[in-house]
Design a protein around this nucleic acid. Structure first.
Lengths: 204, 204
DNA sequence: ATAAAAATATTACGAGCATATTTTTATTGC
DNA sequence: GCAATAAAAATATGCTCGTAATATTTTTAT
């Protein structure tokens, strides 16, 4: 009988190698040979696990989103709501080397997401989950008074996600004014403002 | 003397053709032949005006940022400040076909901006101008009471630009919850909130 | 021990592309 | 009208990369 290998482990190893190469060289300059070398494997082996380059890329993106979801799930669900919200949102920012790498790769894949229907679906699904997740959290927080009822949960979720992603992109591109401290402060201010009751409203 | 051609006009024609092709097929699938065909020219002619593909791409990006700047300059400078700010910010959103095309191309170029130093410089310079422009506007508005003095002008500018770009990207990627109406509303809410004095502050 | 089958490695091919080179065409001064 | 020369088009070249085809190694059941 034939020999056996841990397929899932191999696929993951290759996917992680892909992400490292893309983070280093950019998606446009990433070749199958690069990925194979980075994974310490041959091109043939990469081909064995991924029928085509497109397959490999799709799996890589899935891996990426999975990692993001894991990180979000790992956040402590401890009140007060304001701090919890801040922890969740900060999780999405490139504030350490690992997230920086992953989000750089995410940025590399964004344009492909416009063209490729599979990637588009993946992106939309993930974004939807994220926005709905925040919106649900806002709705629940509204019942305990931690979120002003005059605000629309979905709108606020859209705003928060957009702000975070905008900050992320500019930070990654190295724009002036978008240093790590600054983007944290901006996020903080935004959250405090959206949780504060509107001026003309009584706090009770 | 030999025959002569309007070089600037030609360069612009080619650049515009490039942007149309990139918007349609994506940067990764855009070839010199594509651009030449779109411009109604031969590859040789494109080569005459742009020594290499990289040159062409850089010029295209410059063209892009120039168009954005022109649009901003074309905005009516009429008070009240809140409406002016809204008009300026909306100018950056992909709310019609032309801006949609241009911003799609901008998105296509974002990853290249990470790698290519020239493009990075261009991006940083433009972003800096934009953020400083908004910050200056906030500072001036602060003197007339239209902008709460307890807010930091630069921070607010960073937040506004990030929010706009985040909304733009998600809208272009066709995410649910990021329709045209929604992103306008979200922008509106953000502006109203940042211009409103903080709860614990007297309006005077 | 060995045969069979699976996993992995190597090599080869061909498409597509940017760019260099050559050829043709058009225009202007004399 | 005829060189002279710039502009544009056509063609040629060489390289990179994805993929397919082939070869080699490794494992295990008999």
């Amino acid at each position: 009988m034939p020999r056996t290998a841990d397929h899932d482990e191999r696929r993951d190893r290759i996917a992680r190698a892909l992400l490292r190469v893309v983070a280093r060289k950019g998606l446009a300059d990433t070749t199958m040979v690069d990925v194979a070398e980075e994974a310490g494997a041959s091109v043939g082996m990469v081909q064995r696990y991924f029928r085509s380059k497109k397959d490999l890329l799709r799996f890589g993106v899935e891996h990426l989103y999975r990692r993001g979801a894991e990180r979000l799930e790992g956040v402590e669900r401890r009140p007060p709501f304001r701090d919890l919200l801040l922890r969740l949102a900060e999780t999405l920012l490139p504030l350490d080397e690992e997230r920086r790498t992953e989000l750089t790769v995410w940025l590399e894949f964004l344009p492909a997401t416009v063209t490729d229907p599979d990637l588009a679906g993946l992106h939309r699904g993930t974004t939807r989950l994220l926005v709905d997740g925040f919106a649900d959290a806002f709705t629940i927080a509204g019942q305990t008074g931690a979120f002003p009822t005059e605000n629309d949960p979905t709108e606020e979720a859209v705003a928060l996600v957009s702000l975070v992603d905008g900050l992320t992109i500019h930070h990654l591109l190295g724009s002036d004014h978008f240093g790590a401290d600054r983007i944290r402060t901006v996020l903080c201010t935004h959250i405090d403002r959206l949780l504060a009751p509107a001026p003309g409203t009584t706090g009770a």
